[in-house]
Design a protein around this nucleic acid. Structure first.
Length: 106
DNA sequence: TCTGTGACCGCTG
DNA sequence: ACAGCGGCCACAG
């Protein structure tokens, strides 16, 4: 398996690891942060996430404050796990299962 | 080399 | 308020 990643992917992981615990960022935010107008590319990078535990992909959610996905799985079980992790980090959720806006990165 | 696809985002009806 | 559509970037076959 190739562990070599492109420069762009490296930027995505860098921005993701830069997210402090108890804080979450949206794909679009990360995309703009690294200088890219497409969140899809960010999602792909996180989906491939070769540095799984090293890169807290669970701290990255969608603009709707929905969990999004987890390790390539968009199903409920994966999302449930993701929310559980975020809760452990100190992130609070609402009844809709969405991350509280106050945890979003400014 | 080109096409299709994707853990998305934003606007419009 | 909800649903549908297009647009953007990168990667794999």
């Amino acid at each position: 398996m190739d562990r070599k990643i492109t420069d762009f992917q490296k930027r995505v992981y860098s921005a993701t690891t830069a997210i402090p615990a108890g804080r979450v960022a949206t794909y679009g935010m990360v995309a703009r942060m690294i200088g890219c107008g497409s969140a899809r590319a960010v999602g792909q990078a996180l989906k491939r996430n070769p540095f799984a535990p090293k890169v807290p992909c669970h701290r990255v959610i969608s603009s709707d404050r929905s969990p999004g996905g987890f390790f390539g799985e968009t199903g409920e079980p994966a999302i449930n796990k993701k929310s559980r992790l975020l809760k452990k980090e100190g992130v609070t959720f609402d009844s809709a299962g969405r991350v509280n806006s106050e945890h979003l990165m400014p």
